[in-house]
Design a protein around this nucleic acid. Sequence first.
DNA 1: AAATAAATGCAATTTAAGTGCATTATTGTC
DNA 2: GACAATAATGCACTTAAATTGCATTTATTT
Lengths: 138, 138
Amino acid sequence: MVNVEQVLKDHQIRPTAIRLLMYRFLTESEVALTLNDIESGFDQSERTTLYRTIKTFEKKGLVHQIDDGTGVAKYALDRPVAGKQAEQDLHLHFHCTSCNETLCLTDHKIPHISLPKGFVTEDMNLVIKGVCEKCSGQ
Amino acid sequence: MVNVEQVLKDHQIRPTAIRLLMYRFLTESEVALTLNDIESGFDQSERTTLYRTIKTFEKKGLVHQIDDGTGVAKYALDRPVAGKQAEQDLHLHFHCTSCNETLCLTDHKIPHISLPKGFVTEDMNLVIKGVCEKCSGQ
DNA sequence: AAATAAATGCAATTTAAGTGCATTATTGTC
DNA sequence: GACAATAATGCACTTAAATTGCATTTATTT
Ligand SMILES: [Mn+2]
Ligand SMILES: [Mn+2]
Ligand SMILES: [Zn+2]
Ligand SMILES: [Zn+2]
């Protein structure tokens, strides 16, 4: 059990009611969520506030945005890897074309790619599309 | 010099004036183009037609869409690889955060990734963000 | 408590993507 | 070539996500 309030404070985010609720909501989701998904999870509050909240989380390094090719942004918590520091980056994402869910495969890192001379890598984004284990029935 | 009309016919696309023009336009571009880019390249014709044209090209396997994370779709020609057949897929894309250009690195294939049991891969999309050789000055 | 700064709610804007439908052009049949 | 059938085009309109402006409310600082 983590102290959510403390997590937000540690990221220089003031722990308002909605922020605490959204953080918990994100924690409980196994899959990446669109803003609509998040909105559906809240009776109270309003789209703009939720939008600005998720953007604050993103800027402060609490969540990362995932572009899975569906055209709508999804968000997932930066779940800290035990033992590692700031190394939760560059994992790959899987998008199921059957159930439309997208998830982080946090322990599948993107392999190193060597580029032609002159190209400088700053970030990488690898999305695999296919059928997830729930949908493939395997 | 390829016969553009024949290329279209070979892909079951009727070679209308606009289609011929757009194909040539795509051929001449080193980088992936948004619909706006394409529109800017044509005095005549109209956005919807260009949209439907690029979608026809995509469906018939003449171009592929690239989602580079900027939120707007880009398109690039499926340039046939000499000797290979249908194997022009799964190359990676580079998006320059400086000049905002996106390009196909057609001879950099996406490495094979082994997924957890139950996951079935259908397609992969790898975008590397950074600074291109033009912008890095290297 | 008053002043200051930040967060929220609601309305409105922006922009890319996509659809409906009438018009025009092309193709196949006689 | 005339005619019918089919496909392509142009224009208006819609949809949906993302984003901003601004007034109001809430929290923080002095
Ligand atoms: Mn992730
Ligand atoms: Mn490409
Ligand atoms: Zn699935
Ligand atoms: Zn560049």
